[in-house]
Design a protein around this nucleic acid. Sequence first.
DNA 1: CTATTGATTGTTCAA
DNA 2: TTGAACAATCAATAG
Length: 146
Amino acid sequence: MAKIAASSASASTSTTGKLVLRIKSNEGMKRSLRQTKSREETKANQNKSKQKIDAEKPKKPPTAFFYFLEDFRKEYQQQNPDVKSMRDIGKACGEKWKTMTYEEKVQYYDIATEKRAEFDRATTEYNKKKQNGEYEDTDEESEYDE
DNA sequence: CTATTGATTGTTCAA
DNA sequence: TTGAACAATCAATAG
C-alpha cells in the first residue's frame, strides 16, 4: 500500500482583498462554541509538535461518514477543482450521504465497525496500563492498620 | 507565521 | 433515553 506522505507546501498568495460577507447565523455560533472547546485540547497537540505523541488516551475512531468523506473528497475535488474548502464538501457529502442506500453505506459502516473494535481494544489496554502504573485518585484504601 | 474557525454525520460515555 | 462532545480535513482568516 502506498502511503501518501503528509508533506504539502502551501503557497498562499492571497492578494485580492475582497469584501468578505459572512452571515453569522446562530447555528454557526453554536457550532463554533463546541469546536472551540475541543480545539483547545487539540491545540496542545499542535503546540507541542506537529506530530502526535499520544500513545495513550485512545481517540475516537472516525465514523463511517468520515471514511466516506475521504473517498468523496477526492471525487469532489476532481469534479469541482474550483471548490477549495472542506466545508463545501462536507455539505455536499452530507447531502449525498443521506441519498445513499444502506447497501452503499454499509461498506463504510463495516470499516467503522472494525475500527471501533480496535478502539475498544485500545481502551482496554489503556485501562490496564492505568492500573499498572498511573495512580488515579479517588481511591480510598483504608490503611489505618499499621 | 500560527492558531482557529467552519461544516458534515456517526459513535461513545455518563447520568 | 438523551445529550453533550469529539472524530478528520483543509482552506481561509484573524491577530
